[in-house]
Amino acid sequence: MLNNRTPYKGHSWLVLSGLALFFCLWCLFSYSGAVNPILLPSPSRVANECLRLLCKGVLLRFTLASMGRVLIGWSTAVLLAVPIGIMIGVSRRAAALFQPAILFARYIPVVALLPLSMLYLGTDNTQKCFIIFLGSFFQLVLMVASSMQAVPRDYVRAGATMGMANKQIFRHILLPCAYPSILNDTRITIGWAWTYLVVAEMAGAHSGLGFMIFRAQNYLATDRIFLGLILIGFIGVLTDYLFKMLIDVLVPWKKNI
């Protein structure tokens, strides 16, 4: 707690044990027959299903389809939300113009927008990406704005006493100071993008991991549901890890704070 710069360092056996414990519990409940195999498929059945779908080529196609949607929806959100968030964070006028509307929009559940989105855009990829965009955009704008506002006032005052004009304070103080936390905001948002992917694939989809999960429900194919959940979790952890490495490389000075 006192020294959590690199939380897992030197604890790789704990990380493994934590995951192993989870796995062992799963094995225990499924192989012992304590839980109905229809409700809780065994790890070997999930692995089997994984192999079967891999051989058919469906699994790779679905995974890539979902990843593509997440990537397009999320990166459109980043491209638009970061500049708008920065504007809200530094300018009172921009805040007055955008913030109330965005606060309002943020509280509309994205699931409730599914029917409208399908009415407007149909059920193709555009609609899926749009749902992911809606889910990440509004949150990200507000996070970026608050990252900009979190720049210590003393740094701004220091800039002013060095003779910086507002533009220079923005360029030399505000942006470089907020940049690491903005990167982190986008990292957190990509997790939400995966949540909204499943929302988007709930209805009117013909491919994707979310689609696979919902379709499997009709056939009581819980092994396939488990496979989908595990895959999404795995991709999430991997993305997060890559992002953290990227942040460490891009902003080495942030590590020691």
Partner: peptide, 15 residues
């Protein structure tokens, strides 16, 4: 302002 610059008591070096 740069010709009457101020040294603060708080930490203002850019990290």
């Amino acid at each position: 302002r740069s010709r009457r610059t101020l040294v603060f008591s708080s930490q203002t070096m850019l990290p």
